[in-house]
């Protein structure tokens, strides 16, 4: 499903090059829910941005559904993201001028899907994330947990191959955090969607099927996928 091959990423500060990711290799199978664990500065956010196609690695390849996203141009990547990638942000990132339902529908708007189909799908997903009654409210009228549920529903509406969740519980209290993780686990089970959750919290990572740990740009723990899954390669930096 997702294959990361020999990823190295550096950036220039002044006259010096700093490498933030060193020869990262891992594979995530279809329907898996994995954690990318690391403390601040470990390179986990950079890794997420590379996997989402928001930036290009200095070296290496990233395959999602057998497409090398590193080779894609901006518009091709946009189209690819639209069809194959879902995003859950730490700060929810909802459009404040749109209602909850309209926010959930937004990715489908970019795919020119008809309003009736969009509405039907959005309402079904809001039901799944437990806020069917909030469809016509605006984000500012919701709590943090509820906003994150909207963000989850939005990430699922295009039925993507993989969903990247960037610190999805980072802005939430413990109780809400548990609720959100429970929702993600439930959706992973029911929809068989692949989830990659970036977190710095061990408690969150422990609830995932596998964890990749990053430290100072090196992959220090690459748990092998379950035996019945696709073959996987590991690689530590």
């Amino acid at each position: 499903m997702l294959r990361v091959e020999n990823i190295k990423h550096s950036f220039k500060t002044g006259n010096e090059w700093t490498t933030v990711l060193h020869n990262i290799n891992f594979t995530v199978n279809k329907g898996e829910m994995v954690a990318l664990l690391g403390s601040s500065g470990s390179g986990k956010s950079t890794m997420l941005n590379l996997m989402a196609g928001l930036m290009k690695p200095t070296e290496g390849h990233i395959y999602i559904a057998d497409h090398d996203i590193v080779q894609m141009g901006e518009n091709k990547l946009a189209e690819f993201r639209r069809k194959h990638i879902g995003f859950i942000f730490q700060a929810y990132e909802l459009i404040t001028s749109l209602t909850v339902r309209e926010n959930v529908e937004l990715p489908l708007v970019f795919q020119s899907i008809s309003p009736s189909v969009r509405k039907q799908k959005a309402l079904a997903l809001l039901e799944q994330v437990g806020i069917p009654d909030k469809a016509d409210l605006f984000p500012s009228q919701l709590s943090g947990g509820q906003q994150q549920r909207v963000s989850i529903a939005r990430s699922l509406i295009t039925e993507p191959s993989v969903i990247f969740a960037d610190e999805p519980t980072g802005n939430l209290d413990t109780k809400t955090e548990e609720e959100i993780i429970a929702i993600l686990l439930k959706l992973n089970q029911s929809l068989k969607t692949t989830f990659i959750v970036v977190t710095h919290e061990l408690e969150v990572a422990e609830q995932m099927q596998r964890t990749f740990s990053l430290r100072d740009g090196y992959l220090i723990n690459n748990q092998q996928p379950p035996a019945d899954a696709e073959s996987a390669e590991g690689g530590a930096g």
């Binding site: 993201r81 990638i85 995003f87 459009i95 937004l106 970019f110």
Partner: peptide, 16 residues
């Protein structure tokens, strides 16, 4: 800018 960024992450292309 932030809103544009979100839209792009959600799949909006340059033309849109």
């Amino acid at each position: 800018r932030r809103q544009i960024g979100i839209m792009k992450v959600l799949g909006a292309n340059m033309g849109q």
